[in-house]
Design a protein around this nucleic acid. Structure first.
Lengths: 327, 327
DNA sequence: ATGAAAGCGCTAACAA
DNA sequence: TTGTTAGCGCTTTCAT
């Protein structure tokens, strides 16, 4: 493909002038600009972004690290990031980490190598020290999940409050035996949502039964099923479930129904995230909606501002309880 | 961050020697190598990939264009691509096109700009001419969906045969009134699967009722619901459904159940793709499994071979009918 | 308004 | 084995 020199030659000008034209500088005469544009068209010239970025020491690429693309929760966040990024002239590199530190390290190096200008991270605790170290030198924003240490800006919701309200909703419906299907408490959201759960119970004068709290290793339908299987073996059977993720809730529903129990009559259940599938289950799943698109869009704005050297503030967004037929 | 010159100075050698060390060339003495490695560590030096790539005119980045990250069908494909790519020293840029030509054009330019070395595309018909033009100059591989024109290599399955076998399965179960929920026939897979559907019907001596064929505009649970709603209004009610995507099948199931009909007793249904949700529905969904991981992995190998200038052959992989409880 | 030239950080051909 | 140096394609001073 043609380079800037060939264009310059064809147009009978210097490379500097061509550069001015392709960067829309105004100090070029109309006549010269036309000649250059003509040459660009004829040669199908496209500036080499690598060279431009080397010169400008920027890449206009944003890294987005997600634990797993198979969790639909991230889908909307990514849409938000992508739309905003493109609008501002950035492209995104979507990277799946599988919560694997080695895989994440590869992507961190992409930043150190200046192949990307900044990074939005949704699973900040895998490489805690490493991330904090990275954030000292490079723009980093945490989205959804975050870690206070290292003072890295974040956008998230109030997980404790959301969980509290979800459980409160069950209590208002007369539920007194409420189990919790939680994920790994190495995640902040898991710790916060448990706190909200406990707070609601305590406030209603209900005891916290440890046999009603189940932790799954991972997110996945089968883990929800397994959790429910275990919960159904407890002597004192719970009559309501709060699952910290729709994925787990849907797995649990599957198990409840396959035992011949009815939802919500025998067991009520509430999830978290409002993934699109949660409206396809039978019955539909009550859940907590997070402003996922906004979270993505705001993280993108934050990271771009950071790249430009502006100061950015962390932000906590609102959630919403979506009452459907499972409660 | 330190550059190669600073490392060279600190180690008391030339930049060429440093370059040799970081590229693991063997013609460097043990002693010199140690000195250089020491300096690299002390300065926390990381080679600038932009500069290296500019020099080598490669980026070691692969573009992966998917219509939508919210369709779980692509998840496994991407895993396959990603694993293989990383193994071979490539990183992937995951790009969601939303089947939007303008959005796709942006990503095509990334290739022309040499920001990526090759492209794997799953929705080749949006910008047909444009793609063929791109493929003339740059490495392109089609995955799953493909277009014969332009002679661009692809990896896919035999959609017609798979659909034929799925419908044949329904016929063997005694079904005679089989409807088709198809997606937009601008997609090759949609045309091929309809052909398989018709072939199975014809072979069994069953008529092809146009009122039993519904086309949805897009993929999404709600489109499956809507399709089913329409199909349930037909005078001569079908007793079985073949949906060309699990997403549509699950939406359809939702509609069937909410009308108080039973699956498979009143209406049997079969989907396509074997997405993980399809095992969470009640009843579980009979479907056609595609070797998604392999498709991804093979496309990655193909595109890398193309980048390296090797000749590559298109390939058609095997599928499998997964019989569950909806039929 | 335009051009000459330095330089972004690296690799590789050539020399020693 | 090691060093010198010419680019890769672009942007941006500094002159003119």
């Amino acid at each position: 493909m043609a380079n800037i020199l060939e264009v310059a030659k064809m147009a009978g000008v210097s490379v500097a002038t061509v550069s001015r034209v392709i960067n829309n500088r105004k100090n070029v005469s109309e006549k010269t600009r036309n000649k250059v544009e003509q040459a660009i068209r004829e040669l199908h010239f496209e500036p080499n972004v690598l060279a431009r970025n080397l010169r400008n020491s920027e890449s206009r690429l944003l890294l987005v690290l997600i634990p797993s693309i198979s969790n639909p929760f991230y889908t909307e966040i990514i849409n938000g990031i992508e739309d905003t990024a493109i609008e501002q002239g950035y492209n995104i590199l979507l990277c799946e980490t599988d919560s694997n530190p080695e895989r994440e390290a590869i992507y961190f190096n992409l930043i150190r190598n200046r192949l990307a200008d900044g990074i939005i991270i949704m699973d900040p605790t895998i490489n805690r020290e490493n991330l904090i170290e990275l954030a000292r030198m490079h723009p980093v924003v945490q989205c959804s999940e975050f870690d206070e240490a290292g003072n890295i800006s974040y956008v998230t919701i109030d997980n404790e409050l959301a969980a509290y309200q979800a459980v409160k909703h069950l209590i208002k419906l007369g539920q007194r035996k409420i189990a919790l299907i939680n994920s790994d408490e190495r995640f902040l959201y898991a710790r916060e949502r448990r706190r909200g759960y406990e707070k609601a119970l305590m406030e209603a004068g209900l005891p916290i039964e440890t046999s009603w709290i189940y932790h799954t290793g991972k997110l996945g339908f089968e883990y929800g099923q397994q959790a429910m299987r275990s919960l159904l073996n407890v002597k004192n059977l719970p009559t309501a479930i709060f699952a910290v993720s729709d994925i787990l809730a849907i797995g649990a529903m599957k198990e409840i129904l396959s035992r011949g129990l009815r939802i919500p009559d025998d067991i009520a259940i509430i999830g978290f995230d409002k993934i699109s599938f949660s409206n396809m289950t039978f019955p539909t799943l009550t859940t907590v909606a997070q402003p996922m698109y906004a979270m993505g869009s705001i993280s993108a704005k934050m990271i771009i501002n950071k790249i430009k050297g502006k100061k950015v503030e962390s932000i906590i967004l609102d959630h919403e309880l979506i009452i459907r037929n499972s409660t």
